[in-house]
Design a binder for these strands. Sequence first.
RNA 1: GCGGUAGUAGCUCAAUUGGUUAGAGUACCGGCCUGUCGAGCCGGGGGUCGAGGGUUCAAGUCCCUUCUACCGCGCCA
Length: 594
Amino acid sequence: MKRTHTCGELRPESIGQTVTLAGWAQNIRDHGGVLFIDLRDRYGLTQINMDMDSPDVLALMKDVRAEWVLQVTGVVKGRGEENVNPKLATGEIEIRVDTFKVFSESLVVPFEIDEYSKVGEEHRMKYRYLDMRRPQMQKNLAARHRITHAIREVMNAEGFIDIETPILAKSTPEGARDYLVPSRVHHGHYYALPQSPQIFKQLCMVGGCDRYYQIARCFRDEDLRADRQPEFTQLDLEMSFADQEDVFAVTEKCMVAAFKAGIGKDITPPFPRMTHADAMNRFGCDKPDLRFGIELHEVCDLAAKSEFKVFKTVLESGGMVKGLAIPGGAEFSRRVMDTELLDVAKPYGAKGLAWVKITDEGYAGAPVKFFDQATLDALAARLGAKKGDVMAFVADKKSVVNASLAAIRNDLGHRLNLIDNNEFNLVWITEFPLFEWDAEDNRWASSHHPFTNVNPEDEKTLFTAELGADSELGNIRSSSYDLVLNGVELASGSVRIHDPKMQTRVFEILGISGEEAKERFGFFIDALKYGTPPHAGIAPGIDRLTAMMLGYDNIREVIAFPKNTRAICPMSEAPGTVSPRQLRDLGIREVEEK
RNA sequence: GCGGUAGUAGCUCAAUUGGUUAGAGUACCGGCCUGUCGAGCCGGGGGUCGAGGGUUCAAGUCCCUUCUACCGCGCCA
């Protein structure tokens, strides 16, 4: 036993006992004749001290420096009323050192291991093992553990079994770029790291496992964001003889338990629901932040009544005009409207932001002269704009209008302080379209993934629709759903196809030929033919869930060893080069960059 | 691939219009100190101002190129 207690547990009840603690020297306060060291481990801080009554030990302890690892044996003493430190859980006691041992010394650390110092993220990640000693990361990692543990408890209680699926898997068409692993025994053949265990979990259903879950690592070789890492973790689950309602119920149980365990927060199921079409119409995006109001309204009919050229041109070319009311926005300067808000919308393709202020004197703004009073009143009524507000419009093709106004809406939520940071607003978004037209590749693509079932009401259309760009395929709804938390996609799932004929039809629409389907997915399509139960599932992102609970936008905060935005691990410097021998074994020759 | 922001001491930052020897806090080193707890006081060391080029009597500051990090767009079934 290297210690009898941790640095966080001693209380006055132990006064008089001889104990042994071990930990890092956090802070050394040398007063000449008396010396204090805060000894730190995962559990807390305990003050140890020494004075001139043992000058030899004191002299030795004066050599100790920050972050040395010590073992200390001594007697637990009360501190006396004046010396109690109310900030420390162990603040009523201290350890009077009899003997101590230095387990290891430390170099001067590149940044301070405390709760106060700000440190740049680059440094934190390069020295993650030191960053992890700081209270912030200790807290984050512990919270993540509590969350996954709570989720496992729910899943186990609900009769799900944890099944591991391969990491060395097979590349599947559609979706993100794969991370590939070359095969040594089969030159020219590659494993793909799973983007998700999708096919395997469905095969578990075919295999009669009935309820599967896994806290699974997923890999996607795409560019990174604050909330996107090349490897990330999902609670992956799948249920047989289940539909959307069953998935929602069990996911809600997980979320309730996760929030309770993570941050002690009670959230109330069932979560509200909104169709994808509603979300797009009212908020311009499929992951609306419902912590605040402000809704988008289509105004094509009213815009058409104006002589405003921007609107007319867009409408004539098949575009649309939508607007929103900014409460109190009449106060906004021209700069805010024409520069700041426009800059928010620009990355999404908006070329301009038309706005009309409603002041005591009436309507004001560049477009006003192109409208008659009745139309302006009708616009204000449609948007719900009052005196003191400003109406903001974007005219463009539909996707640009929605994306731009959605971005502006989110900006306004922050700008106008409409957001309560303690609120966790969960909403189900349902009935996503089954397909989206991919203009770049000139083909239909799955909105969710190719194994998503059609909404039963649209099943007929699926089999009768033409395959062209303008066909009804774009209107077909799927049985898929997302769980959205405060404007962030937290989980995505669907009822799956269990009928091989349906699966074949979907592949056909996606332009995956029978031959290619056989080559890529033959095993899966074959499996469906051997008696497949109806099944459905979902996969909530653990990194995002944890980060959001703890108030971070950035999932690196809740990942022990994350990668930077260039997909490099700043600590290990992965990815690295390999020896020519390794490449030869794999049958790989590097080519010169152009 | 594109756009934005940033890069100055180990760390976090400041440096006015281009103008003296580039500063502060903290960390580090030394000294003093018997009750501190983000200890205090005194002293000290520490800089390729990301890199390269240019303009200028003079550049941390202006211009160009480039690198790095972060945020976003594209991308992410």
